[in-house]
């Protein structure tokens, strides 16, 4: 299994144990934000090549949401952190 993700709670696991939600960079606007802000958040996505930040869920393991920073061309994984720690950022 080529694609390995190092879960901070479970250790190194194959990507088959995870579900990918997608881009982790858009931040949810406040509930009363303008329609434009919500339109951006819901519909508009960049399509980058290279280093990306994504939300992955370890569904077959600890079931925690993780933020995986990886290269979507080479699938080199740079960092994996629990998404709960991102809340404080």
């Amino acid at each position: 299994m080529a694609s390995l993700i190092s879960c901070p709670h479970c250790g190194t696991r194959p990507k088959e144990e995870f579900a990918i939600r997608g881009d982790a960079t858009p931040l949810r606007p406040s509930s009363m934000a303008s329609d434009e802000a919500w339109h951006d958040y819901v519909h508009l996505r960049t399509n980058p090549r290279g280093r990306v930040r994504e939300h992955w869920q370890h569904v077959a393991g600890c079931r925690r949401w993780l933020v995986v920073e990886r290269d979507n061309l080479s699938h080199a994984v740079f960092s994996v952190t629990d998404a709960a720690t991102e809340v404080d950022r």
């Binding site: 696991r13 144990e17 077959a60």
Partner: peptide, 10 residues
């Protein structure tokens, strides 16, 4: 102990 995937079963 660990939650693991055994084939397709958790």
């Amino acid at each position: 102990a660990a939650n693991v995937l055994c084939h397709h079963i958790s």
